[in-house]
Design a binder for these strands. Structure first.
Lengths: 224, 224
DNA sequence: ACAAATATAATAGTATTACTATCGTTTTAG
DNA sequence: CTAAAACGATAGTAATACTATTATATTTGT
């Protein structure tokens, strides 16, 4: 059996009706991930999504307040799932340095294989996170949305990895700044390597982005 | 005399009619910077700008193709101006380490005083760059716009500072990745400190963001 | 098995946005 | 002083981001 019997529990403020509670809901989520990948988030609309799934846009509005909240929802799904991946990959490993290295690999590399964890295609979702996640919290309503818990999953991931940083160097003053720099930086550098190569130094074949952020991290922790 | 007699030359692809060539053009630019600060870029429209300057939106369209290109224009202005600031601040300083330190200060701290370099309020412009600059190159048309030279000024700044990095450590493999990480990271960390403090570690009074990126940079360059 | 609640489809409608077009008047430049 | 360019005023269009209504289908509790 490939499918795991666990399900990610997401902040209920994110939907009117739980998309996990019906086939249509699942279809809305999975198809929106595909469509955002094809169109980009800007050009993605509920009307177009409705056409793909054969339902009118008004039906989609019964699940999600608007397309922005839908993006927040799938982003949350990604970070909850990544938190779980981090936990799995680092338990039973005694060396904190090794655990941090593993974590940075997970945070800086796009997902290449769909684990069939659920109805969601994790490869496509990872693509969305790398290219669109900035739009999730770069909005006029950040504070309000933050208070509702919209970004909890992301903060949990940063907190989890920051704890490892502190374990390695308890005197280090900027663990969260370091980890959020690594995550956001890796996303951005991948985008740069594809579109604005003058802003980066990547050889397509190498894992230069992971390599860079690992060196940066360990040099900082070993010398501060 | 406070006003300097030089003017930044910007990529002519960015406008239909040079906004520097008329009073109305200058007003469009300076008032749009104020309005974007107040409304945020999403809620900023040419119609609203028209109301502020007392002209119909159709007139603004005679200068700029759309609001996105206007944002690219002011961003370009900022980076050209910053390139000039970097040059001024680092000439005649022999130590490359010191030059890099100065550069990182300029790149990571928001502008606090309006230098009256022009009709543009540099403090407000800097605010826009810190909070909205991601939207400049995060668009479906990046490649096309990049080819037209829309991002040249930014790339010039990264190149200039990368050269100093290479001067300090000629073997370092990732000079551009480092500098773009520092710039984008500093912008983001400032945003986090204001809206998502769990993702950072800043004391409002300190220059913790600059401090972090300087330590990161010099540890990396001295140990790689 | 059946009434009541709930979910969905089909359709229509509104306000705003991001433009484009036209045309008459003012300003500017040779 | 005349021709060109710039500008203001106004109108119009297609798309977006919703909201509302109603009829039909499905589920659910008993």
């Amino acid at each position: 059996m490939n499918e795991l019997n666990i399900q990610l529990k997401l902040c209920p403020e994110l939907f009117f009706k739980d998309p996990n509670s019906s086939e249509l809901g699942k279809k809305i989520v999975s198809k929106s991930i595909e469509l955002i990948n094809i169109l980009g988030f800007e050009n993605f609309t509920f009307k177009k999504l409705g056409k793909v799934i054969g339902s009118p846009e008004s039906t989609i509005y019964r699940y999600f307040e608007n397309k922005h909240v839908l993006l927040v929802y799938v982003t949350n799904w990604y970070w909850s799932w990544t938190d779980y991946r981090l936990l799995l990959a680092t338990t039973n490993i005694s060396s904190a340095n090794r655990r941090l290295e593993i974590a940075i690999d997970i945070l800086t590399k796009p997902v290449l294989v769909d684990n069939s964890f659920s109805h969601i295609n994790e490869v496509l979702l990872s693509e969305i996170i790398f290219s669109e996640s900035l739009k999730v919290y770069n909005t006029k309503k950040v504070d309000e949305e933050n208070q509702k818990g919209y970004f909890k999953a992301y903060k949990d991931v940063v907190a989890r990895v920051s704890d490892v940083v502190i374990e390695i160097n308890p005197k280090f003053k900027y663990p969260h700044m370091l980890i959020s720099t690594v995550i956001e930086g890796a996303h951005q550098q991948k985008y740069f390597s594809e579109h604005l190569p003058a802003l980066t130094d990547t050889n397509k074949n190498e894992d230069s982005i992971s390599d860079f952020y690992k060196k940066l991290t360990f040099n900082l922790l070993n010398n501060e």
